[in-house]
């Protein structure tokens, strides 16, 4: 059994609870032991850094130290958590001044970090630890004939000096996963672009244009569904889809799945187990077509 410290991030424990549930379902099927981290805090995304650089180091250094104490690496299911924890990890490993001042804080709460922890997103845990060939053998519901548009988003790919999972210019991990599940990966330029979530409350027009363009392109390429490895992208693409549609003058109704939900249905989960009723854009028609 593979063991990981499980860092679901905030959204998966709040509005995106279905993502957490789907992840647990998939982990069980794949024999991945997800050890809870009840003490771990929010990573602060890109925002905490803009509030105070050292606060970002301390807060996330604490999370890394907790995992190090548990003796395991961290498994993430959110792009932004993945990047933020990885950025802090790189900084602490490569900058002794940062490590020293973080450890000074950590020593006051009985922790210490030495740089041993790795941060891995579920997508690449499946690729590297389970293997797509092994995954293929576990599929009970083949996604044959379903056009699936992978939406990587940003922080699982960039900056590639920090998150080093895939080829930043032409990533393949997501497409390979879709093919292992029997689906048809849809090729479209926006797959590695921004969903606009960062400015969804700050500049809605900008944000919606980004999500709208991505959904529109996927639709034009005949996608039946978009899938994302990030709950923030999911909010932008699913929850705010009507605003996205308006911004590109198109009525959109593109179902959007979380990555573990896609793996989940292929491994035999039903509609309720994947929490599909919680999505804004209905997954009913697609689920019926797949037969779940």
């Amino acid at each position: 059994m593979i063991r990981y410290a499980y860092y679901p991030g905030c959204v998966a424990q709040e509005s995106g609870k279905e993502l957490d549930n789907a992840t647990r379902f998939v982990a069980k099927k794949l024999n991945i032991d997800l050890i809870p981290m009840p003490e771990a805090s929010c990573c602060g995304g890109g925002a905490l850094d803009g509030f105070d650089k050292n606060l970002k180091l301390f807060i996330n250094g604490r999370t890394l130290a907790l995992a190090e104490k548990m003796g395991v690496d961290i498994l993430t299911i959110c792009n932004t958590c993945t990047l933020t924890l990885s950025e802090v990890n790189e900084e602490l490993i490569n900058n002794s001044e940062s490590l020293d001042k973080t450890n000074e804080y950590l020593s006051k709460i009985g922790l210490r970090y030495s740089g041993k922890v790795k941060i891995k997103h579920l997508l690449y845990v499946v690729r590297d630890e389970i293997g797509f060939d092994a995954l293929k053998k576990m599929v009970v519901k083949n996604l044959n004939g379903i056009n699936i548009a992978p939406f990587y988003g940003c922080h699982i790919l960039r900056p590639s000096t920090v998150v080093k999972f895939d080829d930043v210019e032409s990533p393949t991990g997501f497409e390979e996963l879709i093919m292992a599940l029997g689906g048809e990966p849809v090729s479209y330029a926006n797959r590695t672009k921004c969903c606009g979530f960062q400015t969804i409350l700050v500049d809605r027009a900008q944000s919606s244009y980004l999500s709208g363009s991505a959904i529109l392109e996927a639709k034009g390429k005949k996608a039946d569904v978009m899938v994302t490895p990030c709950p923030l992208c999911h909010l932008s693409l699913d929850m705010y889809q009507s605003a996205a549609g308006k911004s590109v003058n198109e009525k959109l109704s593109m179902p959007v799945m979380h990555l573990p939900q896609l793996i989940g249905i292929a491994l035999g989960a039903n509609f309720a187990e994947m929490g599909f009723s919680r999505h804004n854009v209905s997954l009913k028609p697609l689920s019926e077509r797949i037969g779940i």
């Binding site: 905030c10 959204v11 509005s15 929010c42 602060g44 925002a47 105070d52 807060i59």
Partner: peptide
Amino acid sequence: VVSIAQSIKKTGKLDE
């Protein structure tokens, strides 16, 4: 940015 920092200070979480 400030709301996120305050939220973490209060609960350790991002209060959506």
